[in-house]
Each structure stands twice: as structure tokens, then as C-alpha cells.
Nucleic acid binder design. Sequence first.
DNA 1: TAGTGGTCTAGACCACCTC
DNA 2: AGGTGGTCTAGACCACTAG
Lengths: 254, 254
Amino acid sequence: MSAAKPRYQELKDFIIAKISSGELQPADRVPSENELVESKRVSRMTANRALRELNDEGYVERVAGRGTFVSDYRSRSDLLEVQNIAEEIARRGNTHSSRVLRQSQQHARGEIAKALHVDQGTAIFHLLLVHFENNVPIQVEDRHVLASFAPDCLEQDFDVVTPSGYLTGIAPLQEAEQAVRAVMPNEAVRKYLEMDTGEACLVVIRRTWTKGRPVTFSRLHHPGSRYELTGHYTPPGSPRTPSSHVVQLEKLRQ
Amino acid sequence: MSAAKPRYQELKDFIIAKISSGELQPADRVPSENELVESKRVSRMTANRALRELNDEGYVERVAGRGTFVSDYRSRSDLLEVQNIAEEIARRGNTHSSRVLRQSQQHARGEIAKALHVDQGTAIFHLLLVHFENNVPIQVEDRHVLASFAPDCLEQDFDVVTPSGYLTGIAPLQEAEQAVRAVMPNEAVRKYLEMDTGEACLVVIRRTWTKGRPVTFSRLHHPGSRYELTGHYTPPGSPRTPSSHVVQLEKLRQ
DNA sequence: TAGTGGTCTAGACCACCTC
DNA sequence: AGGTGGTCTAGACCACTAG
């Protein structure tokens, strides 16, 4: 019953599982190549490939002479980074809070049903909340979740955990698709975000997949004057930039 | 004077050079592992690592039993993809055109000098043009380029090649950093893009690096009603999705 | 049948870090 | 001095593809 899986991949899965489960925390030491050679009965080249790829993929960081260590969570997954606004705010050293405006069950209508690949009328949960950074509103989250994916969604206290945090706790998301637009907000959104009239919104429309199925469809409105999306790109094959990976555009207030 | 470069890296550079120079075209066959073993006097494991990494990085595609082949250019670099609006439009099957509004030499002032890491007064080129998709204005490109990087910038005919295409022809860009914002356009931009009053702009502010130095700083305005920025993400370590790997600018007809 | 990539092994040498 | 990662070698077996 061997899964016919390459041994280096088994090693990788073994380490990733320990990280995912929390058994290995960021900065914890990962078994060295030699330790894996002994415990897993593989050659050193195989252990090396496993750890090297985990390094390339950002799961761990390796230092010759010292060892292999679990990467800091934040620098690992751009996906999660982009996902959870509470973490994003915390990373800036600010305090996050939120207000739940709606938390109800609905039936999927046209656009939502289509986006989530389900039949019309399928049970879904609808969440509407405002996120604050240092008590300044910064995002209106309008989210639709497949009810079958998150059955206890209505019992959650989203003042404590963000929907994103709750959902990734159920199962890690595997894929995300998003579109970014600039639009004028409607009156309701404008008030929630305490925006001036004539101010634009940066809107992120996002779908996330778990186990190959779309489970969430959300529309995130941000005040154009207080929010921007930043990204840093290196072409494939570049060496990983260890620290200045987070270089930010300097203040460019036009 | 060996550069103390690993041999697998030398192999990679060797292949990449052939691809960059055009000696190897997309779909062309790349030397096999055994051929590299002979011609480059390396072990097969070393040749394997070089080709495998080139595969992971998207330069080539490998098929067991057949060989290794140069990837289709378009699916290779997300960075370039996101860079060149003409290619984006062409990929959608539409026709690109542009109008040059300004093409002049200036001295770097405060913000620009800071963004490009040069002293005040350093010579730079300033480009301002409008890009059209099927004769509909879709982007105002306001770009500043280090003069020392592109000395013949003023002689270029940007009706034929986009600034982006011209610049990547000089040297491949290695890094990019961008911020996305939603703002209301000023009157000039609004007219260039033929936007309604009260329509928002999606603005991309981008800096690109070559050889470790920032060489370009641009501000790209798009009409919010006709443009969106889309992205598709998979967490690190996921299998490469062959086709929908692309991150592309897409037009939106809402 | 010969060639390809995919994987694995059991050694090896080195630079580096920590003790 | 001993452990770590970084690299490299010279073999090997396999599944797959092609002629």
C-alpha cells in the first residue's frame, strides 16, 4: 500500500504536517539531514532534497552550520497574509476590532450560486462586518460561505476571531482568486467606512478554494484614502531575499 | 577565477543564456541530462538538479521519456506579464495602440529621486502616454526612468514598442514592487481616459529593479469601470498549475 | 531497443557555526 | 572537534516514449 510517493515528498509531507499541526512552531528546529537519514532510513541526498525544497517553498529556513528552522509564519504564505485583515493590522503594530452587522443563513442566488459552483437555493451563510484599525474603519467584509463547509458558522463570535481566521481553522485554503477594482461606494458602504463623498473604494473580490471546491466568496470594500494593496515580486529562479522581502514603497502620498 | 558558483547553477545559467539570447526558442529541445553529463563533465545528479530547477522555475518543461523543452515564453514570467500592457492586450486578442504625450529629460525631484535612490537633480527621462485597447483608452502610463540606465530613451518610438518592452529589452528586470490604490483622477487623467465624472481610478504605482538598483518608477492610471487587476494564488509547495498560473490584468465589462 | 526523465543510494569534500 | 548545510559523484533501478 505504498502511496507510490517519492520518499523526498514523504519527508516533506512529514515536516509540513508537524508545522501545520503546531507541533513545530516558527523558529523551532527541524530534524537535520543526518537525523532524517537515521530515523527515516533515507540517503542524505534525499533528506537534503526534501529540506531544500521546503526552504525554497518558504516553509523553513536553513543556515549552514546551525540547522533548519521553521519559518516565521508571517513570511511564509502570502496567501494567508492577504487573507486575514486582523493579522495584517497586528503586523503593523495596530489594534484590530470589528463589528458584526449580519450573520445569517440564506439561499444562494444567481451570482453567488454561480461563484460557488452550487445550485440555486443551496444553503449559505452571509456575513457582513466592518473591520477597524485603531478604531478607524478600514474594511467592509461582505462574505458568503458554503453552509456545508462551515456548519457552525452562525454560532461563531466574529468579534473574537475573524471569519477568515475561523475558516482557515476548519481547513487550510488551497487556492484563491481575486480581482481588485476601483469603484465608488454606495451610501451604506460609504457610511460604514466613514468616507467623504467623492472618495473611491478599493474593492477586492475574492474566492477561495478548499479541497478543490470554492467555499467562500467575498467582497471587501476599503476606503481609497486609507488603504492600499502592496506586493513585491521576484521572477522565478531568483534567490530568496531573506529580509528585505518586505520592502515597502516609501510614503508616496501624491 | 572560477566564480565559486555551484556547477548546477552554471548549468542553469548556461541554459538560461541560450534561451534569453534566442538561440533556444520555445518548444525547442534542451540538452538532455546525459548530454550535459558528457559535454559539461558533471554527474547526472548535478545535471538533473539544474534541469529540474529550471522546470520548477518555469523556464523549461520536462516530459519523462521525451526530453526537456523550452517553455512557452508567455507562461514563464509573471513579472513580465504584469509589466507589458501591450502583451496583455494581445493575449486577449485585442489590438493595442498608444499615444505619446511626453518624452523628455528632466532632473529628479524629491519624490522621484527618493524612489529611485538617486540624488536630487540626477538626469531622468519622463514618459507620459496613453494606452488603448481596441481604441478605448485603458491606461495612462506616467513613467520615470533612470537616464543612465536607458541612454537612448528619447530616441525610441514608443508607438511601436511600449516603454516596458523597450526597457526589458535593455536588461531583464529582476524585481518589482507595487502598490494598488483607488483614487479619483484629476481632470487631465480623466480626460485622457475618457472617464465619466465621479468614476474612480485604479492606480498601480510600481518600481522595478535591475541589477539590484531601482531603475523605473511609474504610476499607471486605469478607469475603474473598464479595468480590474486579477490574481490567482496557490500556497507555496502546491503543484504548478500549468495554465491558469497567470496573473494578469484583465478588462472588465461590468 | 535505446533514450529520456524520476528517483535513490552511499559515499565524499568543503565552509561554516557552535561549543 | 563535531554538527550542520552545500555540493558533487558514480553508480543504480524504474516507467515512460520513441523508432
